[in-house]
Amino acid sequence: MAVEVNKLNSRAICVRIAPNQDLVTSIEKTCLKENILNAFIRGSLGSLTSANLEIAEGKSQAVEGPVVEILCLNGEIKCDDGDVPQASLYGVVVDQHGDIRAGRFIPSANNVCVTMELIIEEWGD
């Protein structure tokens, strides 16, 4: 059974982030460029050279590379008072040995390895 909802006023941007670009800030810059104020991240997968995750308040976890696969990623983009998009991204990653870690992706600390492909789904008019 399929339930269909047409959303004629919203945009969806498909994105490929190249190697050695930061995951979080690349998404924020894309939203700034396209004037996206509120969005949800859909269909996101790829790999990182290493990962830095916030795993609890004030605690972070480094995941060593050379390649860390992103298993799941969910996130949203909201604007601060100055209409600057800020991305909050949460997910699960696995290193080359199969060790799995989860947390919030720390901005400017997660470089793409081979590729990151995702869809930024705009919410609102």
Binding site: I17, A18, A62, P66
Partner: peptide, 21 residues
């Protein structure tokens, strides 16, 4: 502790466009 994100030099020529949309 946050580790400085690693850089990986791939075998091919680097494309100028870093984020495609």
């Amino acid at each position: 502790m946050i580790q400085w994100p690693e850089f990986h030099q791939h075998p091919g020529e680097v494309d100028k466009e870093r984020v495609l949309t």
